[in-house]
Design a binder for these strands. Structure first.
Lengths: 246, 246
DNA sequence: CGCTATCTTGAGTAGCGTCAAGTCATGTGG
DNA sequence: CCACATGACTTGACGCTACTCAAGATAGCG
């Protein structure tokens, strides 16, 4: 952290991957110092986003992938008719934009849910570099594959879970991801609205709200607006895989 | 079904990618002849599967990716509690197993829905070769990305469509994939049961059956068991994005 | 301090799931 | 070739979950 009160400057936002606390979770995982330096050279700028800013929009051409440094984003898929669905929420260390590689155009919108900072990684150069650095290549493949695996989990959720089960799975997933980043697994702030949660879970916002209230009444979770405290993780976990008649 | 009664012989099943009619859709797309030969050398055997055979199971270690040569397969994700959900149906030219790269273990079962033939591509060697052949690397990335994009589409379907809309989207998707392979876009045979369709679409088999009957009564589709004829593709397309209150 | 977006809660309803009965297709053994 | 068994599909009646519509509470923001 730079001391002093120098006005915010893009150059200031420049941090090397090598000094980034997320390198374990992010693209550089498993690289040696020299390799990280070469990756660093690619990451040509860090973009700062305010709440509501678009990182990219559906239809725009793929230039770069983005790694979340700080903050929280959502990606939304759009129907022809205007309906939209949240396809994922993204927190620090996660990579965005991989859905665009196949067609060369983004298929989703990516929107900041709070002030966020992302590292921009030009995709073509990443491909080139990954040919030189097998560890990078392998890790990139693992990241893409994990996105596929995550999607399979969401399909399972949307296809076979009850409303409260979906919300329980959602909270446990967030909890786990916060814990992996060194934050509390039991207390956190939701950066998205009930409607966005509902969209992600295939539910209406009223249903999400009712499920929260129910968890609260049961003493499983303390909900105060966007602040969540998981009181009884075990009972929350117990909700998974029990409803939904077989 | 093999003619005569010659015992099945792996060598017999060997076909070069270069002579394969699927090379446009499959991994070799965009490679020159010399590059295809090098890819060919990787594909160490073609596996023949009967209906019901597992290509791989959830939990088994990733050895290879598989390209469907002929036939039809499904992949299923399994819940802890035994519930299972069909995550996708796979036809010729499509690549299976990419969900396993992240963890090194398959997260889904892959099962043949009819007699099928797949090409086995050892994943480690594919990674090595793709470092040497930029076209192969890029195409592999595109294939993985398209799987992510497909999954986003399924999420949209499961999260925001009504029952009949889901089935319409499903039929149109199949139609398009058959057409891309030179088959009829309007007449085809479903290789999966109503229950498997329902599992994929997040519906019960009765609901699928009722939706088929409704389409039939409307004259949109002629259904006879597993044989489907799309009579009025336009009306089927018209079903998308109109129900489901906003 | 008031405006607006967000959230909660209630009442009524529709759509899909559940249960159940019956039909049809496929395959097997006598 | 037929009788039978089995699995797959269709259809109906009923119930429950989550959606819809609506009113009111709360929080965030200028």
């Amino acid at each position: 952290m730079q001391a002093k009160t120098i006005p915010i400057n893009v150059a200031q936002l420049r941090h090397a991957c090598s000094s980034c606390s997320l390198s374990e979770l992010c693209l550089p995982a498993g690289l040696d110092l020299q390799e990280i330096d070469r990756l660093d050279a690619l990451v040509n700028r860090k973009r700062a986003l305010k709440r509501g800013d678009y990182l990219y929009r559906a239809g725009s051409p793929l230039q770069s992938l983005y790694a979340v440094r700080t903050g929280f984003l959502k990606s939304c898929v759009l129907h022809d008719d205007g309906r939209e669905q949240v396809a994922g929420f993204h927190m620090m260390g996660e990579l965005l934009g991989m859905d665009a590689i196949g067609s060369g155009k983004h298929l989703s919108d990516a929107v900041a849910l709070e002030s966020s900072e992302v590292c921009e990684i030009p995709f073509g150069e990443l491909e080139n570099l990954s040919r030189d650095i097998p560890n990078l290549q392998q890790h990139f493949h693992r990241i893409m594959s994990r996105e596929i695996a995550r999607d399979y989990g969401v399909m399972l959720l949307l296809g076979s879970m009850r409303a409260e089960e979906r919300l329980a799975a959602f909270l446990l997933n967030l909890s786990q991801r916060f814990a992996a980043r060194g934050y509390s697994a039991t207390q956190f702030i939701l950066r998205m609205t009930r409607e966005e949660i509902g969209s992600y879970l295939g539910l209406k916002l009223e249903t999400v709200s009712r499920a929260f209230s129910h968890f609260q009444n049961e003493g499983i979770v303390a909900v105060q607006n966007k602040t969540i405290e998981i009181k009884e993780p075990e009972r929350l976990r117990g909700l998974l895989g029990q409803c939904a008649g077989h």
